[in-house]
Design a protein around this nucleic acid. Sequence first.
DNA 1: CTCTTATTTGTAAACGATTACAATAAGTTT
DNA 2: AAACTTATTGTAATCGTTTACAAATAAGAG
Lengths: 334, 334
Amino acid sequence: MASIKEVARAAGVSTATVSRVLANSPHVRPALRERVLKAIKELEYRPNLIARSLRAQQTTTIGLIVSDIRNPFFTAISRAVEDSAYEEGYSLIVCNTDEDPKKESIYLNVMRDANVAGVILSPTGPTAAGLRELETGFAVVVIDRSIPDADVDMVLLDNVDSAYRLTRHLLENGYRRIAAICGERSTTGRERCTGYEQALRAYGLLPSAELVRFVPPQIEAGYAAALRLLELPEPPEALLTTNSLLAAGALEAIHERGLRIPDDVALVTFDETTWASLVQPPITLIEQPTYEIGKTATELLLQRVAEPERATRRVILKGRLLVRGSSAPRVHCG
Amino acid sequence: MASIKEVARAAGVSTATVSRVLANSPHVRPALRERVLKAIKELEYRPNLIARSLRAQQTTTIGLIVSDIRNPFFTAISRAVEDSAYEEGYSLIVCNTDEDPKKESIYLNVMRDANVAGVILSPTGPTAAGLRELETGFAVVVIDRSIPDADVDMVLLDNVDSAYRLTRHLLENGYRRIAAICGERSTTGRERCTGYEQALRAYGLLPSAELVRFVPPQIEAGYAAALRLLELPEPPEALLTTNSLLAAGALEAIHERGLRIPDDVALVTFDETTWASLVQPPITLIEQPTYEIGKTATELLLQRVAEPERATRRVILKGRLLVRGSSAPRVHCG
DNA sequence: CTCTTATTTGTAAACGATTACAATAAGTTT
DNA sequence: AAACTTATTGTAATCGTTTACAAATAAGAG
């Protein structure tokens, strides 16, 4: 593991000159540059990133903080972020908060201690307590969930409109009694619920409190909520869930009750997954442009690293409605 | 962002003393220790990890290099590794190779440049070209795929035996003409194929070349291979795939051909996923102890960091057969 | 050929921690 | 009280870079 000193000695120059060659500085005579490059090659020299970071007060690492990387949405995001980061010579550190603000806060501090260039964050709550208490000292881009009153770059989905379109699709196909199982505690679940209610109203229907559930965005909670909805005296004709985990739970509940989709109950959701098109019938859903979200977030982040004072942006991407069998036109039978 | 110098000044001591307090050295008078701790608290001092790493020639970061984090197996592993790393105060950098040895090699070099403490690697090939060319300079634990002649810690599945049990289960349930779609280029796919063939032989059957396919371990390849198998003049009664992506592809092919599981063709695979129990019928499979694999790999890694000269270990974990509907006892009809 | 200016190179000081080593202070023995 | 230990603290070097600044060299002008 040769250091810059040994390269300098081998090339008969000072470390400053080696550093200049490395940085492609114009102020190096071609002859010297050649000698240095030769020494670098011969010694298989690679600059020590730690030393460089210490001096530069900045690493080429970025952090990704999400609730759980196993949520397919975040898995896809992480892949996109890693690809984009890699292209720009950055490494990616991933962190799982499990929706725990304390863990979020700890990780944000770890990121600061590690001198990351920036962090892409899916916040545990809409207040960004963790962000506020820290004058972060690094760039931040928020994804998936908004922090309404924070002046920070964000990449979000058009949640209200996507939910509106998804619900309208059900209505157009003849479903009327539509239940919604929404992720609690995030702006995302709230906004999607709003879109759902707006669509109902646009069709002259009154949202019923009985049919709207806010639960932790996890399989078990989706299962429990769906089960209770299906056990209602007057069960819903369709179920809308706001993410793939809730959908998986709902599907489980539907199977358990021995109901057929969509004849007995339709099912629509957010987030494309491997399984959504594999189950029979395949699931109608709003596909988020996960790769684009991750890519855009990374780009915004690195732009801010380069230009910290730039005005913040809020990028809203459109969800795409994929119509499949789970919401086929309703056949009235009785 | 206070540095150790400012803490030292505030407490009226030298930086050495502050450092000793930080390291819990016994040689500090209680009175001084108190003063230092007070200064640390007041200045909200947090040690700079970069500086610490430069001096220690070692970071508290570990790398995870896999083919694609979106493969649910690796997603689960990454979560386990991150959890275990977090507990020990380490951060996790993830890298995707897409099965490309060049990318693997580049990432290994990046890991070295970044001075990671160690790397958990699912190698692209059985020769570890990337590892060899590098005298790594960091601890390495190999997972999922073996590097037969390398003296390195490994955490693997009992592939041969698991595949044997999976195949035997099919045989016991009356299936005879069983096809295997195996991931190519890894020891894992090969070993699982071996177990499959051993089981056949144990039942007096001769493995047929026609029924064994080695393909890239991806959905599309699984789809294509399954389709061709199902189009055979004498199609198989059961399909065994060696990972969840191949299974997803195979399932797609089965659906497309309008076949019923398990009546027309049974399907069994490796790797538990969200969807395997959601599809109808649910899929029989060998569940890998993903969390344990990740946890064990991290433990081995940190043990080696602490004690570099320790003899290498090879931990083999057992897969668990989960019997579900996709391999129900065969009903002969004609 | 000298003087001025532009270019190239080197010296040395950071960056923020840790840690040999030396120096000092505090106890223990005689 | 002197001579040892032993415990505590500080000084300064070090890790591997980058980069002001100074120094040296080369080029250009008269």
